[in-house]
Design a protein around this nucleic acid. Structure first.
Length: 520
RNA sequence: GGUAUCGUGGCCGAGUGGUCAGGCAGAGGUCUGCAAAACCUCGUACAGCGGUUCGACUCCGCUCGAUACCUCCA
């Protein structure tokens, strides 16, 4: 089940050509450093991408890089964003785009966001965009004025419905749109540009049948999605703020150019807010990812690691707004640490620790997991599940089933996380010998964590422990000295060692199985 | 003004017509030389007012409030 913005309801996901799935997501406009707001759609659709793949779909995931830039102001004469940046920094526009797209990749990698299958650039698809404009002109739904081409929204609305995605009524739009200066070229204020003639000061320009200029604001996504995913494809994603007019206009363009509706399921992630307000470039209240990772920002009380950011985002459902605060982020950091620590323990739960449940003969239906997966996806290859997910028998099997159901219910990552925490409780209780677990359930628990925590949620360990043999050796020596002191009940000595190490951000814990340490 | 979404305990954040989200913080306890970690217990939270219902936080209506989009924004 996925929530389709078009119908405002959850629908059963049925791809056009299973097991293939086509997914297009609006990527960044590369004229500034990526901020927390960019992380949300990237992580949201990374989750979708990972889950669909887990279900066995062959996903072609296309996420564009907008390097042509949109107009800066509401005036048609406004300056292109990337051009403006280029002028300020005295660079070629493409230099700006290259720099920031590189930055984008670096930070997305840090967040463990998988690279999409194709990352096309708008500047590399001018020809396709010109071709699309030609089709729309031929169909009679666009007109040329002074070398610029505009889409005729009024005419489109006579036959189709402009506003069906965003729930808008054209008449309201017409009456509400502000009358702007310099829009004389448009027949109507709701029309939008497909091609703009370049003014003398515009550096970014390409030849076209109409003029030297640049493509309109919404065209690149239509052109590139058509090129790589075909005239019809399954999923189109993006931020909620792109709903109107960007996606609405995409629908109109594709409908006319290709004669059919391109997208089956529209998915929109919600915004991240800061003090209840949207974090956005234009509001100037954004915090860049670089600032999060280093902690260098006036509103940040500390640095937050990439995985903390990722976990923070996944703790909320993608369609809800997510409110940023230091408190919330610190809570996420601690929660994640707890989850990871429990996973470490899980791996060390050795067979000797396992006491079989009394008298329970573990006979499970050998019905393969494959058949169960077919209910919601194509045949799943390589499933390691050895129980019937629709009829879980133990509490741990229930956890697995809950996670599976949650993901199938519109990618409900918060519920997955809640179930993982229940797994944490079980792990710790077994560790403390307060609960028992069967060998079979232990395996399922390990699969639960490796599948959902790592593969699906895409979280990973960030500890520095064990990366350096020298440090490991030194720590071993120090800790054995301290153990000797402890055996001699020389508490001042052992406590000095511990507090001194703590000053170096090394945390020592005395457990029943001997001391452990970790870098904070 | 139009359109849409939302209002959950100190904070973040799920969900549902009739046991329970979960995390963080807080209180008490167990364990431990002390810490830390871990475990157990604890808060009668669902903006307000009506209505439907045997029963509503969950459905409907109204009120209040918030946010987003209508101009670039993830």
């Amino acid at each position: 089940m996925i929530y389709n913005t078009l119908t405002r309801s959850k629908e059963i996901f049925q791809p056009l050509n299973p097991p293939f799935v086509g997914m297009y997501v609006c990527g960044p406009t590369v004229y500034g450093d990526p901020h927390l707001g960019h992380a949300r759609p990237a992580i949201t659709f990374d989750l979708v991408f990972r889950w669909l793949q887990h279900l066995g779909y062959k996903v072609r995931y296309v996420r564009n890089i907008t390097d042509v830039g949109h107009l800066e102001n509401d005036e048609d004469e406004g300056e292109d964003k990337i051009e403006k940046k280029a002028r300020i920094e005295q660079l070629e526009p493409m230099e700006v785009a290259q720099f920031y797209s590189d930055r984008y990749f670096i930070f997305m990698d840090a967040l463990n966001v998988k690279r999409p299958s194709i990352e096309p650039r708008a500047s590399g698809h001018i020809i396709e965009q010109i071709g699309m404009i030609g089709k729309i002109l031929n169909a009679g739904y666009a007109y040329e004025v002074n070398g610029s081409v505009y889409f005729d929204v009024i005419k489109y609305n006579e036959k189709y419905r402009y506003g069906k995605l965003s729930g808008r009524i054209l008449e309201d739009l017409v009456s509400n749109t502000r009358v702007l200066e310099g829009q004389d070229e448009k027949h109507n204020s709701v029309d939008f540009a497909l091609w703009k003639k370049a003014q003398p000061e515009h550096i970014m320009r390409w030849p076209s049948p109409w003029s030297e200029g640049f493509p309109g604001w919404h065209l690149e996504c239509s052109a590139m999605s058509t090129k790589y995913l075909g005239e019809q494809f399954d999923i189109h994603g993006g931020g909620l703020d792109l709903l109107f007019p960007h996606h609405e206009s995409e629908i109109a363009q594709s409908r006319i150019a290709n004669g059919k509706d391109a997208v089956r399921y529209w998915l929109h992630n919600n915004m991240i807010t800061i003090e209840g307000q949207k974090m956005g470039k234009s509001l100037g209240n954004f915090i860049t990812l670089d600032e999060f990772f280093t902690g260098h920002h006036k509103d940040l009380k500390q640095a937050y690691s990439p995985m903390t950011i990722r976990f923070f985002i996944l703790q909320a459902h993608y369609r809800s707004t997510l409110d940023f605060s230091n408190e919330a982020l610190q809570a996420a950091e601690k929660g994640l640490k707890k989850l990871m620590a429990a996973y470490e323990r899980l791996l060390k739960l050795v067979p000797e620790d396992i006491v079989a449940l009394t008298g329970k003969v573990q006979v499970r239906s050998q019905q393969s997991a494959v058949s169960n997966h077919q209910a919601s996806g194509p045949a799943k290859a390589g499933s390691t599940l050895r129980f019937d997910i629709q009829h879980p028998a133990s509490s741990i099997q229930h956890l697995y089933a809950n996670c599976y159901t949650a993901m199938n219910d519109d990618f409900n990552s918060p519920v997955v996380i809640a179930n993982l925490f229940e797994g944490v409780r079980i792990i710790n209780s077994v560790q403390d010998k307060k609960e028992t677990i069967t060998a079979e359930d232990l395996e399922i628990l390990k699969t639960l964590f490796s599948t959902f925590l790592f593969e699906i949620l895409g979280l990973k360990e960030e500890t520095t422990t064990g990366q350096d043999q020298l440090v490991d050796g030194l720590m071993h020596t120090i800790l054995s000295l301290r153990e000797r002191a402890r055996i001699n009940r020389d508490w001042p000595a052992s406590d000095t060692i511990r507090t001194d190490l703590e000053k170096l951000h090394i945390l020592v814990k005395d457990t029943k199985d001997g001391p452990t340490w970790g870098v904070q």
